[in-house]
Nucleic acid binder design. Structure first.
Lengths: 113, 113
DNA sequence: CTGTCATTCACCTATTTGGTTGATTGATTG
DNA sequence: CAATCAATCAACCAAATAGGTGAATGACAG
C-alpha cells in the first residue's frame, strides 16, 4: 500500500523530469529562486499557456510549490522532494551490491572446498 | 552541441525510468543478475511482446545491455548509466545551495554595514 | 526436413503528451 | 467604470506511448 503510493510518486517525478523544458524550469528556479509564471515563460520560445501547463505537471509531481500572493503566483523549487529519487537510486544500488556480495562468497566457498 | 547530446540522453533515461514496469525490470535485474527476455516476462501480467518492447526502451536509454548468446538474449543492468540521473539531481541541488549561500553572505554584509 | 523455442517485426487501438488559440476569472490601475 | 495584467480553463490537434494479436525469423532437437 505504502509501497504503491511511493511508486506512484516516483513515477510522477521521473515523468516530470523527463521533459527538457521542465528540467530547464527546475534549473532556472534553482538559480534564481521563486519566480512568477510570466517570468519563467519569458525564458522559453513557447506560449505562456504551455509553460503554465508544464508548471502544473511539476507541481503535480511535488517538485515545485505555488505561493499565490496578490494576483501573482510565485513558483518555488522543492529540493526536499528529490530525496525520493535518491532513495530509489540507493535501494537499487544496494540490491545490486548484495547480489554481487552473495555471488562472491559463493565463489570463495567453491574454491575453498 | 555536447550539451544538447547530454540533454537528449538524460531525457531518454528519465522517460525510461518513468514507467513502473520498467523500474520493476531494473530492480529484478539488480536482484537476479542477467536474465533472458522470457524470464523477465514471467514476472509480469503482460504479453511477452510488451515486455520485449519495454526492454528495448531501457536498452535505448542505455540502462540495460543485451548479450545475444545462442538463440537467447541475456539482458543485463548497467548501473553506471543510472548515475547520470543521480548526477543531474545532485547538480540541481548544488545550484540551489550556491544561491542560498550567496543570499546569506549578502544579508550578512548588509547587517554588517 | 519438421517441429519447437526465443525473440522480434508489423500492424492496430486507446490513451497520454506537448503544443496551439481563444475565452474567462480576478485583481490592479487610471 | 474601463483598461490592463497574471494566470487558468476549454477545446482542439499532432505525435508519441503502452498495450494487444498474429506472422516471421533463426537456431536447436528429433
Amino acid at each position: 500500500m505504502v509501497e504503491q503510493e511511493s511508486q506512484h510518486r516516483l513515477t510522477d517525478i521521473f515523468k516530470a523530469a523527463g521533459d527538457p523544458t521542465r528540467r530547464s524550469i527546475l534549473t532556472l528556479l534553482a538559480q534564481q529562486g521563486p519566480l512568477r509564471v510570466t517570468d519563467i515563460a519569458a525564458h522559453f520560445d513557447m506560449s505562456l499557456n504551455s509553460v503554465s501547463k508544464h508548471i502544473k505537471v511539476l507541481e503535480g509531481a511535488g517538485l515545485v510549490t505555488r505561493r499565490t500572493e496578490w494576483r501573482e503566483h510565485l513558483i518555488e523549487l522543492r529540493v526536499e522532494e528529490l530525496a525520493h529519487v535518491d532513495r530509489w537510486f540507493r535501494d537499487l544500488r544496494s540490491i545490486w551490491a548484495l547480489r554481487l556480495e552473495a555471488l562472491d562468497t559463493l565463489l570463495t566457498q567453491e574454491t575453498d572446498t
